[in-house]
Write a protein that binds this DNA or RNA. Sequence first.
DNA 1: AGATTATATTCCCATTACGGAATATGATGC
DNA 2: GCATCATATTCCGTAATGGGAATATAATCT
Lengths: 107, 107
Amino acid sequence: MPRAASSSDVFNAVAEPRRRDILVYLALRERPVGDVVAWLGVAQPSVSKHLKVLRHVGLVHVRREGRQMFYRTNVEAIRPLHEWTKTFEHFWRHQLARVKERAEGNP
Amino acid sequence: MPRAASSSDVFNAVAEPRRRDILVYLALRERPVGDVVAWLGVAQPSVSKHLKVLRHVGLVHVRREGRQMFYRTNVEAIRPLHEWTKTFEHFWRHQLARVKERAEGNP
DNA sequence: AGATTATATTCCCATTACGGAATATGATGC
DNA sequence: GCATCATATTCCGTAATGGGAATATAATCT
């Protein structure tokens, strides 16, 4: 079985560094594709493809205005990722505490 | 340019659902490979390969004991992921607040 | 040393990925 | 209608994927 498609879920979608950059950029406010292209410094077709993936998994919203497409990060869609990582927060607190204890010579 | 290797960074490594399962399973305590195989219900070579990827990006630690290899999730390595998602926490609070305001008819 | 157990590696395959270049669609303006 | 601007899609090539099967390594036991 080959690797899952980037467009299959949020985890695969954010595996791409550029897509993470785009999400950060579009979190502040909606922007037309051209702005993303200028800011990222990559070819327009490439940006359009990344945006397509992000749209597929619901990580961005789109709105058309004339010939421009305004994209905006759907921050809610990032929550599942955040929740998943949060399940470990608990553990690393404990792990840190243990390391600290040992460093201080407390049993 | 082809897709980045799963072993290139933490984001790519956790894009695989089974690897996420493994990380959760090994967060509680260290376990030999055989336990992971039994628990996941997938072939042993497959598990070994996933563990190799996780090891490469530092998401698990290994310890040999006789012929067994005990793996444990390195929860610290998940923090970068957590931190990245946290940059959006702020935004979805605002977004939720706005949605709520509108629902309640408050300007 | 030979057999057995635990894990890792290799090989093959179908599938997907991303980037680049070219082309297509879609909206606006003359 | 035609040209132009903004964005999307298609085609190509290289590279990596994860599963399965077979094989290799490494440690233990008799």
